[in-house]
Amino acid sequence: MAVQFQKNDKLLLGTVLLVLLAGMAWFSFLGRETGASVKVTVNGQLYGTYSLKQDQEIKIIIGEKVTNVLRIQDQKADMLTADCPDKLCMHQKAIYRQNETIVCLPNKVVAEIIGGEEAELDSIT
């Protein structure tokens, strides 16, 4: 095997790995809280906020076309369909923890889980 690590490599790789693992640990503690609603933005603009408690299918319409369908079920949000070619957002797991996001890059659609208070207000409107 030709791969042999020198001191420099071990130092750099070790430090980087440590920082990454620390970051991951920190984030997983930070983002443990379950969210209350999902905020959808299109092109950076707010499209709507929907409560996770209510099962529904949200059609995201850009222009005249339904580009994405977001489903809320069992207090989780999941991208049901997307008209983009890569379908990466559909492959993503359902989100429910605060700050988790589903992104559809070609359509610039972002679904993001947010916390409690605001949700109650928005579900009335």
Partner: peptide
């Protein structure tokens, strides 16, 4: 690039996972 395009900086929520995948 993705954060700039969708104008949402919460994408960095996934940064640790993505960077470990990159590692």
């Amino acid at each position: 690039a993705a954060s700039v395009v969708v104008e949402n900086y919460n994408l960095f929520y996934y940064a640790p996972m993505l960077l470990i995948a990159g590692f």
